[in-house]
């Protein structure tokens, strides 16, 4: 055999996630009303979420049949541009965190909330660990769809204090104590 390099140690992923996701917001766990579909014609629920490209392709059908009940899923590498004109009729935007180290969706959240004044539900989905929760809330996410079991457990006893005491004020949902300009957003 050739020389072994670094050993791969498989994390015991099975106990970390059982595919059962819970929707959490700063007021606690809540019901997830939206079902993910990859195609408009497959939708068989009252409220749905479609991938960005499909949503834009199907905008006419959505407006005619399900106006205000179909949200958008935006993957990490996708751009917001195509969506901006439709923001007022999009009830929920799900921004993806494919791995927790991929921070692109934080910027999109900030843009949606502070520049485009998005009024719908901004949802974080994907690889969400407890240590990113306060960043997400401070960037304007309203809800987090969490599959990581330990994170779910920790969120159950999460207190609102964690959002204060930062230099940057975030999107105005949680005020921090200071008064300087970089402590306000």
């Amino acid at each position: 055999m050739g020389s072994l390099e670094r050993l791969e140690f498989l994390e015991m992923e099975t106990i970390l996630s059982d595919g059962n996701s819970k929707l959490w917001g700063p007021h606690g766990f809540c019901e997830n009303l939206y079902v993910r579909f990859d195609k408009f014609e497959k939708i068989n629920a009252q409220r749905a979420i479609l991938p960005l490209r499909e949503w834009c392709l199907q905008v006419t059908a959505i407006v005619e049949n399900m106006k205000g009940r179909v949200g958008v899923f935006i993957s990490a590498e996708e751009d917001l541009k195509g969506l901006l004109q439709f923001l007022s009729i999009i009830p929920v935007i799900a921004l993806d965190f494919p791995v927790f180290t991929d921070g692109r969706s934080y910027s999109k959240a900030m843009q949606l909330k502070t520049i485009h004044s998005y009024k719908g539900e901004l949802r974080a989905v994907g690889d969400i660990l407890i240590d990113q929760v306060s960043n997400m809330i401070r960037c304007g996410f309203d809800t987090l769809e969490v599959t990581h079991l330990l994170t779910q457990k920790r969120l159950a006893s999460y207190s609102g204090e964690i959002f204060s005491g930062f230099y940057q004020n975030g999107v105005g949902l949680f005020r921090s104590g200071g008064k300087r300009i970089w402590r306000f957003f």
Binding site: S3, L4, E5, R6, L7, F9
Partner: peptide, 9 residues
């Protein structure tokens, strides 16, 4: 107990 195990020559 340990982290980062690897084989060395």
């Amino acid at each position: 107990e340990i982290i980062g195990a690897l084989w060395i020559d």
